[in-house]
Each structure stands twice: as C-alpha cells, then as structure tokens.
Design a protein around this nucleic acid. Structure first.
Lengths: 240, 240
DNA sequence: CGCGCGGTTGAGAACGTTCAACAAAAGTGG
DNA sequence: CCACTTTTGTTGAACGTTCTCAACCGCGCG
C-alpha cells in the first residue's frame, strides 16, 4: 500500500494541475508526512484551520461531541481520503487516528492559493468532496431503521471492501478500532455492538479469533443481512 | 418569494460565468420552469439522468426505498437548492414534491457542456454540493442517539429557519408535509411523530391549530430540546 | 502478581414499534 | 351543499428491542 499523496505523486507533477514546476516544488517543500498513534487527535472542532491532510496509511475518524457528552463519529477515512477544505475559518469537527496513521499535511494558506490558480487541483478536491457526500448519504441510509445486526454487518462489509478485499484470500482481517468507536459510528452502545458480534458469531457468519481479529465465513449472508441479496450487486446504495 | 434560478438570474448574466451571451441564451432557451403537485415524482432512482433542477418555490424531498420496502427521505430541499449533478449515468435516488413546487429544469447534456467551459458555473455547483454535504452531516448528527422529541424539535427548527423566519412575526406556519413523510425523514414511525407532536403541545412549546398549522410558543425551549441552550448559538452543528 | 482496561454477558427498565380502534379532515359524487 | 367514502392523524395496549447498570472475564502491563 505505498500510496502517495496528492503532492508526492508523479501523476500530479505530470499533469501539473496547471501548476508550474516551481509551485509544485514549493508545495512539496512545505508539505510533510505526519504520523499519529491510535487515539491521537489530529485537530479539534472549532480550532482555527491550519492544515489539510491526506491519509496515506491507516484509518482516521471524524467526530463531533454532542451537548449530552456523547461522541458521534461521522465518517471513517481510509487510505487516499482527503481531509479538507472545510468551509472557512474553523474545523467543523474533530479528527482522531483510529489506528497508527500516516498523513500528508498541507498548510491551508498555501494550499488555498494553489487551489485558486489550478483548476485541475480544484477538480481533484471537488472529487474528494463528492466522495464524502456519497459516503455521508450511504451512512445515513445505513442508520435509518436498521437493527444492530444490520448496522454491524454493513460496517464489516465497509471495512472489508475498503481495506482487505484485494489483500488476502482468507477473508480474515484486523478490525482497526474498538467496540466503543464502532458504537459511536453506528449510533449504538458498545454492549449492543458486542452482542451483535456474538450473534454473527453464533450464526457462523463470522469467527472472532480475538475481539479484533475477524474472519468472514459467509460473506453472502453478510450481504443478505444488509440488502436482501447475497452479493454487492444487490446493494444499490451501499459501499460506494 | 420571487426567486430566480441559476439561468434566469441577472447575476449569472452579469458575471457571465465565463459564458458568452449566446451560450447563456442557448441555456435559457432549453431551460423551462416546471410545476409539480404534492406527491408528484420528479424522477426515479436508477432512471437515466436527463435533467438537473433548481427549486424556486416549494419543498422537495429526495429518497431511497430500502429492500425492506421502507422509504428513507435523505434530504429536504428548500428554495434555491439545486438537484444535480449526480455522478454519472443514473439518478442515485428518487425525488418527490412535498408541496406544490416550481423548479427550473436544465437538460443535463447541455448543462454538462456549459459546466466544462465555465469555471464560474462549476464553482457555483460546487457550492451547492458543499451545502448538500453540510446538510447531510447535520442530519446524520441529528439522528444519532436522539429521542423522537429531540428529532422533531430539530426538524421544526429546520423548517422555521429555512422557510418562515423572515416572513412572519407570529412564529406560526404551515408544515409542508404529512406525518409519514416526517417519519421517513426522521427515521421514526408516523405514530411516534404524532405522539411527539402532542407531547410538544402538552408542554406548551407549540400549538397545533390543525395537524399541519403550527405555532411555536417557546422557541427557546425548542432549542434547549435540541442543543441544551436556549438559542441558535448554542447549536454548534445545527441549521447550517 | 495484581491492577486496569477493554470486552462480554446478564437482568431490569425505558422506549419505540406494532397492531388496532377511533377521530378528524379531505376528496367525491349526487 | 350535503352525505358518503377515503385518507390522514391521534390514541391506547401489548410487545419487542435496545439501553442502562452491574458483574464478570481475559489479556497486557507495570
């Protein structure tokens, strides 16, 4: 997974995004790769924006804290996903590394200037935004009138399709977060998530080797849980 | 409410969106205003895209039907909101008029061509997309771990802020849809929505003159229901 | 070795849904 | 314009499910 970020990639240099060599060089100079440990916060809601990020390795979550004190994880980001731009001024949400994560960090000010002069760069960022909109709508759909089992099933498929589909033939992988984080993403409690895991396990649909190492035994059953049909094609709205 | 659509407005001609007089003229020729009655469908999910729309009057909903047969209303559109572009190919959701509605209808093909040559037009549409993303995230936040009372309260404030805030001093207005539609938007049953209405009524926070004519008696209580504080400022994430 | 954290499991309470009856409003036809 | 029919909204009781609170387990770490 040697993913290169927007500015590191050869491609962006090749097509240029309408930027001169000098400009790309400038951006490259001020852009660094940053590393985070699990549960480290990248930025806080309502802080003034300083950076945009692109995730090159690991999994990152974006969340708000409700007045009640509850945390809602709005979106989960995977490799290649982009964080920003976010309207003007301050961050509209907080961001936390769910696993060890590597990101390319772009200073907002300079990036904004480059966006202004490069239509291609702007297009690229709009693509990311469109992607974010699709993810948000899909998630909304996934939360509406769904049981914990359905929610967890669709979540596991989301992980599987985004992280591990190509990598191994065993259909077994490490879940990149804890029960509470899944609960905050799925609008459940951690106990209910736990019960849903044992239920999927009892039904022989998955196996849990450890709480976070999972093997999918009947992926068709997982799809059926979510969509009614046994494969991805039966899910008109799910998984991008 | 004499809102003019993207192509009808003087502004777009003035700044030109990078288009020539001829091009704007062309677009205007092929763009017509269309009217819908309540519950009329503008387009169906999975149909091939033919048109984009901009809502100039009324309220429109966007929805998907789940495999279970349940309808989920993903977004509610108000005056000025734009429908499209939606990725490539087919509509990703259906769209229905909730009230009598007037929209400007743009043929997709020609519109796409104009987008290609006009950066300003593209920017405008990206603004709409950003707006849609914010709405989706706000809605997601509003559904997470919320009671029917909280959901209905935030929904009523959404309506109030989008439709009636400036228009009258009485804080009384017509709800532009039925109980079932609100239920589908709030992920509840129509019975639960009904109960939530009577509860707000019992608490003297609202008055229901008819099922759809509402007067907000204590708007601070409505805000408190949603955010904890008594005014819009206490809601960091709500209502745009 | 024992403490602490994350995860699992259980019992009870709280809440929303379901099903059903009823009431009110809107639409239809004489 | 009124009576009839249909649709929409309200209310009640029973049920099922998730949350809450609490105990317990297992693993890792000091």
């Amino acid at each position: 997974m040697d993913l290169e970020c927007l500015v590191c990639s050869e491609k962006i240099e090749a097509i240029g995004c309408g930027l001169t060599e000098t400009e790309v060089g400038l951006l490259r100079d001020i852009t660094i790769a940053v590393q985070y440990k699990p549960k480290e916060v990248l930025f806080h809601e309502a802080d003034t924006q300083e950076y945009y990020y692109q995730l090159t390795e690991g999994v990152v979550g974006v969340y708000n804290i409700l007045p009640s004190g509850r945390r809602v994880i709005l979106e989960i980001l995977f490799e290649g996903d982009f964080l920003g731009p976010f309207g003007k001024g301050v961050y509209p949400y907080s961001s936390v590394a769910l696993t060890k994560a590597t990101l390319c960090r772009f200073p907002k000010k300079q990036m904004d200037n480059l966006i202004k002069i490069s239509p291609d760069l702007k297009d690229k960022l709009n693509m990311f935004q469109e992607n974010a909109l699709n993810k948000a709508r899909t998630h909304l759909l996934g939360m509406a009138h769904k049981s914990p089992l359905e929610r967890l099933s669709s979540f596991l498929l989301l992980l599987f399709n985004n992280l591990y589909k190509a990598t191994n033939s065993e259909n077994s992988f490490e879940i990149p977060m804890g029960r509470q984080e899944m609960a905050d993403y799925l609008s459940l409690t951690s106990e209910t998530v736990s019960r849903a895991f044992t239920e999927l396990s009892d039904k022989q649909i998955i196996t849990l080797d450890t709480p976070s190492h999972i093997t999918i035994r009947q992926i068709d059953q997982l799809y059926a849980m979510v969509c009614g049909g046994p494969s991805l094609e039966d899910c008109p709205h799910q998984f991008g």
